[in-house]
Design a protein around this nucleic acid. Structure first.
Lengths: 252, 252
DNA sequence: CGAGGGTTTGAAGTGCATCAAATAGTGTGG
DNA sequence: CCACACTATTTGATGCACTTCAAACCCTCG
């Protein structure tokens, strides 16, 4: 039986942000943190709320989004284990610049922004490390913008699927079966399209690339064929190290 | 007659990135920097080039872009005076993650990345300051992604025009005339649309909001009308502090 | 088994892209 | 200052991708 204290420490040490932090800081952070469990649909915070805490995801999926007066949502990103959320409020006068909602049941560590902020002020290496991570998120967004302007709907879905492939399999390029991590409707809006478009685009992708869809499972028979179709309209070359929870920051 | 040395110092001190830096570091940076003049069309560096320097723009406009094998370009951003470019190569193994080209004649300071990197390692305040700036660029991109999914072509143009308004006028909301800073074709691709679409969308915007177009000049008669039309499909409220060269980082 | 959300399918509409061509604007050399 | 060449911009006609609205289907779970 592992104590909550130890669980928090384990998670923090697996988080890119804290992987190089000294135990003294980790312990300090743990003292001020607690674990929360969010059911599907739970709103963690809303855009323009005052911000005291940031979140480190242990498991589950969380969407970051903004919405207009008429309720239309724009999804900024969807994050999963070992990602952090809400930390940029430090630079926004401690106001969250977006809303966050658990879209699959999520376990998270919730920790005070002030502790993070203090460490950033005092520890240049840590600041630089976080700068590194944010700079990569930014590059990731550059690609996202590019994808939305150059790729069509089936290609965007293909790209999404390719990013779900574990790194080992990316190297061997052997066929495998992967599972869509959350609702297709959500994937659709993550990719900036309507659910109906997603459905039709997915079956077009199926016809073009010999993948087999069964519910949320996607069987890739010929990865090169999928890559050839998907990455034709992209400036990067597969495997494009497009940051996901599993394979980000390989070159740190 | 101002020496080049003094011109560089003046520019650096006006750059957000260095506004709080000590003279000792500024002087060190100046010793290793030089001014370059880039005519329209000059390529500063290309995606995947090895990176030794970053650029600080004194005047002119520079586009950051990536391109696919077939030559299609995706514009990441277009920057102007007091912005910096290429600095994130520090976090990409000293390889530029995008290409850069002067699209209007530009004066720039070119300085070694290593000097910047050293200062980041040694100076937590400076690292945190840069983190601050990059975090805001990231938020800016969040908005960009939102705009591309929620706004139609005329609204995107309206938003672009609104961002060109000086801060004082944003407050008074009085009418004024502004000038488009570079070719309409480039604005079009900056906004992710075709030149033809831009032309048609601009005349639709004209009909909807009582602006008057004459070549590159845009006369805004009723700013509230322009805002009402443009910002209807956006999650932010005007003035949305959407980072441009002139008004970014007001709350630092 | 039945309710409700997620997903798919169909039909019609819209916005933007594309292709083609005319027009306006700019810089050049005479 | 004008004519030419060249580019930027606009306009027209058409096509396609995605959206929208409507309805059916399917899956899960009480």
């Amino acid at each position: 039986m592992i104590s909550e204290h130890d669980r928090i420490i384990n998670t923090l040490k697996q988080t890119d942000l804290f992987e190089k932090s000294k135990d003294s800081f980790i312990n300090e952070l743990v003292r001020q943190s607690r674990i929360i469990e969010a059911p599907k649909g739970k709103i963690l915070f809303s855009q323009d709320d005052n911000a005291e805490y940031f979140y480190i995801i242990q498991s589950g999926w969380v969407k970051m989004f903004r919405e207009t007066l008429d309720g239309t949502q724009a999804i900024i990103d969807i994050r999963s284990s070992h990602d952090f959320i809400g930390e940029t409020a430090i630079f926004e006068n401690y106001v969250y610049p977006y809303s966050a909602e658990a879209i699959e049941p999520a376990n998270m560590i919730i920790a005070p922004l002030s502790t993070l902020h203090d460490e950033l002020k005092n520890n240049a290496i840590f600041s630089l490390h976080m700068l590194h991570l944010i700079a990569r998120q930014k590059r990731h967004q550059d690609h996202e913008i590019e994808h939305r302007s150059l790729q069509n709907a089936p290609q965007r879905i293909g790209c999404f699927i390719l990013q779900l492939i574990p790194n080992e399999n990316k190297k061997t390029r052997e066929g495998l079966t992967i599972h869509l991590p959350y609702d297709k409707t959500l994937i659709a809006s993550r990719l900036g399209m309507q659910p109906e478009t997603f459905s039709r685009a997915l079956s077009k992708l199926k016809n073009e690339t010999d993948i087999v869809i069964k519910g949320a499972s996607v069987k890739i028979n010929d990865m090169d064929k999928l890559i050839g179709y998907t990455c034709a309209a992209c400036s990067s070359i597969f495997p494009c190290n497009n940051m996901t929870s599993k394979n980000k920051c390989e070159n740190v």
